[in-house]
Amino acid sequence: MTNKTSMRLMRHSFLALLFVLAMAVGVPVMAASGGSLQQANASLSDQGSLQNGAKLYFNYCSGCHSLKLMRYSRIASDLGLTEQQVMDNLNFTGAKFGDQVPPSMDVEDAKRWFGAAPPDLSLMARAKGVDYIYTYLKSFYLDPSRPLGWNNTTFPNASMPNALWELQGVQTAVFKPGEKGGDPVFEKFEMHQPGRLDPKAFDVVARDIANFLQYAAEPAGLVRKQVGVWVLLFLGVFTLLAWLLKQEYWKDVH
């Protein structure tokens, strides 16, 4: 095998490795986003967003939903919060600092009021994607035909009321007739009653809650990218050393 052939093989192998790594990162991102979903632009590197998302989640969502795979102590450690901050501002159930996050509402009461117990949200972002959660939180509208008076264009006939209505406001949905007598097609939202926040500020609320749930679904994601950078640097240095070693071994081979 000549020097030129050996170098070409090493170059192709390195490019193949980079391609595999890029696909490993890119595929989950593409699979998590749907064609009609809005982009949350959430980032796990934004600690302020995660802290705000945690505050909003525990004030508006934890009354019904649990995070059984998360512990208050882990949230404090990962999000740069003290035990006192977590226990004073995020814990409304009397749980201990090392306990998992339960719902505030009794499960049997939830079944009686909503027809089913609200789901645990620990893995919701992995199951649906952060863009889905973001879009879902923005898509509630008044619907008198539903038992609780609310519906959702992202998850039609959801049993959940709009827990964020005081922030977002109350909106109605405008539908246009479907083609050839089919189901009506959603066209737009119209604001029926303004909330405490303007639309841009509410977008931040929805993004931060979605971002916090993205973190809760995979806390290791906070450090995975940092580790990935060091792995790529190691592979680059290792490849260079391997090439230099090969050059040394083959320098006298003609």
Rank of each mutant, 00 (worst) to 15 (best):
S77R: 15
N41M: 14
N41F: 14
M30Y: 10
N89G: 07
A125H: 00
C61T: 10
E83R: 11
D88W: 08
F140K: 00
S122H: 01
D46N: 15
M70N: 14
K111V: 15
D109F: 13
I133A: 01
K68H: 11
L123N: 06
P144L: 01
V130H: 01
C61Q: 09
T93G: 07
A116T: 12
V86M: 06
D131H: 02
P119G: 03
D131I: 01
L69D: 14
Y141C: 00
A127N: 13
V130N: 02
Q84E: 14
M70E: 13
F58T: 05
L50V: 11
K111A: 14
N59L: 15
R71D: 10
S43F: 14
L121Q: 00
L142Q: 06
G94R: 02
S77P: 05
L81W: 01
S139F: 00
A31W: 13
L148M: 09
N59E: 13
N59A: 15
R112Y: 06
R126K: 15
G26T: 11
G26I: 10
P102K: 09
Q84N: 11
A95S: 14
P119R: 04
V27F: 12
L142N: 02
P28N: 04
S62I: 08
G63P: 08
G34C: 08
V130M: 04
Q100D: 09
N89V: 06
V86I: 06
I133S: 00
D46F: 07
I75L: 13
S49F: 05
V107M: 07
V25D: 12
Q39T: 14
D78A: 11
L79T: 06
A32T: 04
L79V: 10
R71M: 13
G34W: 07
D106G: 04
Y141F: 03
A40V: 06
P102M: 12
G35E: 10
V101S: 03
G26W: 07
F97A: 10
D99A: 09
M124T: 14
G115A: 08
L56C: 08
N91A: 01
M87V: 05
S73M: 08
M23K: 07
T135W: 00
A116N: 07
G48E: 15
L123H: 03
S33H: 15
G94D: 02
S77I: 09
R146K: 13
L69E: 14
Y60W: 11
H65K: 05
S66C: 13
L121H: 00
P144C: 02
T82I: 09
H65Y: 09
W113Q: 12
A32L: 05
L123Q: 06
G48I: 09
P103E: 03
S66D: 09
G35A: 12
S33W: 04
M124F: 10
M70T: 07
V25T: 11
D120T: 01
T93K: 04
L67N: 02
A32I: 03
A125D: 01
L50D: 08
A117Y: 01
S45P: 08
D88P: 07
A117H: 01
L56I: 08
Q100C: 09
F92R: 14
S45R: 10
A54I: 04
